[in-house]
Amino acid sequence: MQAQPDSVSERARPAPRTLVGESWDVGHECGTSSVETGQEPVRGYVALTFDDGPTPETLPSLLDALVTAGARATFFNRGDAAEAHPDLVRAQRDAGMWIGSHTMTHPHLRETGEREAFEEMNRAQQALQRITGEWPPLFRPPFGETDERVGVLAARLGVLEVLWTVDSRDWAGATEDEIVAAARTLRPGGIFLMHDWARASVDALPRIIGELRERGLHPGRIDVSPCPVPFGDTPFHATAVAP
C-alpha cells in the first residue's frame, strides 16, 4: 500500500522526554481537567502502552495479564519484530488490543535523512497492515524523539503521533514497585509508557490496573485530543478515551 494522503492536520511536535512522576490532566475539551477532591477521584480513562514488541519471551504472559484483568492496551510494534513474529501481532489483535507502529528498526529519526525516516515509518505501517489487514492509525517515534519534520511525515502517512504523560522508566531498569508508583501519578486522559520486553512492567500490570480502578480510572484507547498535552517544551495531541 502506498502512503496515504495528507489526511491528518499538522500538530505541534514534542521533543524531550517527560520525567517520572510528571503527569497532566487531560480532558476531551480544552480547559477541562480532573480534580482530586480528597474523596472520590473523577472517573476517566488512561492508556497503557507498550513499545518495541512483539517480544516472544514476554508477550504471552503480558497478554494473559491483560485478558485476565479484562483490560486492553496499545502496542507500538517495531516492523522488523512484527515480520519476525507475525503470529504474536495477530495474538495482540485477537486479544482485543490496539496496534500502532514504532518504525521498522527503531532508529533516531531526527538523525536520519527525510527519505530514510519516511521509509522507516512507512515500511512498519505496511508490515503491520500485511499482518493485521488494517493500516495502523497510531505512531510513536522511537525514544520519543521527534520534530516538525517527523510530524509532517506522520501526517503524510495519516497516523496520529502519540507520546506519553507518564514514563514508567522500565527501559532504565525501574523495579516493579517503582513502575506501580509511577502509574499512581496518571490522571484522566493520561498515557503510560512501558515496554513489552520489560519483565518488571509485566509483573506490575495486575497491581497497576487494580490501583487505577480503585481510583475510578480504567484502561482506554487513544484518540485525538482537541487540546495540547504537555511534553517537555512542546505539546502533542493524543489522549485516552473510552474503549
Rank of each mutant, 00 (worst) to 15 (best):
T32A: 13
D51M: 08
D94K: 13
R184F: 00
M194Y: 01
A82E: 01
R11D: 05
V152N: 04
W197L: 04
A65C: 09
A183S: 14
I99T: 02
L160S: 03
T37H: 08
I209R: 09
S101E: 12
V229S: 04
E40N: 02
A200N: 15
R43W: 00
D170T: 10
Q129A: 12
P136M: 06
T58R: 11
S7L: 12
P235L: 07
P56A: 07
L109H: 08
G216L: 08
L160K: 03
R123T: 14
P107K: 07
G31F: 03
A155Q: 12
R93N: 06
R72T: 15
D196H: 08
T49Q: 10
S9H: 10
P60F: 04
P60E: 10
I208W: 03
R17W: 03
D223V: 14
V241M: 07
S9T: 12
V152Y: 00
A3P: 06
G210V: 01
E214R: 15
A204R: 05
R221C: 05
L63N: 12
F139P: 00
E10W: 06
P228V: 10
F139G: 02
L160I: 04
R213F: 07
R156Y: 00
A12P: 00
G190R: 09
V202G: 07
P86H: 06
